[in-house]
Simulated scan of single mutants.
Amino acid sequence: MKNTTGIVRHRALVRRVASAAAVAAVVVGGLAVGAGSASAKSAIDIGVRSHSVAVGQSVQVTATGNSDDFGPTPIRLCIDERSGSGAWRQLGCAPAGTFSLDAKAQQRGELQLRAQLFGIFGPHHAVLDRTSGAVDVRVH
């Protein structure tokens, strides 16, 4: 009589390992799909028509931005400026999308411009989502 218990045990072990590997693959695949669909999308950009202007001239500034980080909450896109190392000052805001305005160069030196996206939760409650990098304009 032939001893088959070793072969039977080996086959059972192989089946269990294969089943565990299949379950692990399904779980990892499900996590990868779930992580991709749960990520929010947010983008912001700012540009200027000219990087050098004379004092008293205006430079056209265009910002684009949108976000779904706050779900259905309205999003506001704002453009800020600062001269030299001074404080940032808000020039204007509009609903998310594309927004353009003219910024007047008041003094010689460096004029910096940036865009910001805010989620609007009430008349006096805005939450910053993201800020663009600053764009420099030389004022001569």
Rank of each mutant, 00 (worst) to 15 (best):
L13D: 11
R15E: 11
V135T: 03
A126I: 04
F121K: 05
L77S: 00
V48A: 05
G84T: 13
G29D: 08
G133F: 06
T131A: 07
A35S: 15
A54W: 04
D102R: 08
S19A: 15
Q106E: 15
G30P: 06
L91S: 10
V23C: 09
N66E: 05
G97Q: 04
A134N: 00
N3F: 13
S132I: 01
D129C: 02
A12K: 14
I75E: 01
N66P: 00
G92S: 08
H125E: 08
G119Q: 03
G56W: 10
T62C: 08
A94W: 02
V59T: 05
G71Y: 04
K104Q: 13
N3Q: 14
G84Q: 10
S37A: 14
G34S: 15
M1P: 12
S132H: 00
A21I: 10
R82E: 09
I75N: 02
A134G: 06
N66W: 07
K2D: 15
V127L: 08
R89G: 10
M1S: 15
T73V: 12
S37M: 12
V28A: 15
A105D: 08
G84M: 12
R76V: 05
S58P: 06
V137L: 07
A40M: 04
D129K: 00
G97K: 03
I75A: 00
Q112F: 12
V127M: 08
V8Q: 13
T131P: 01
A115H: 03
G47F: 02
G86I: 13
V48R: 04
D68S: 06
V139R: 02
I75K: 00
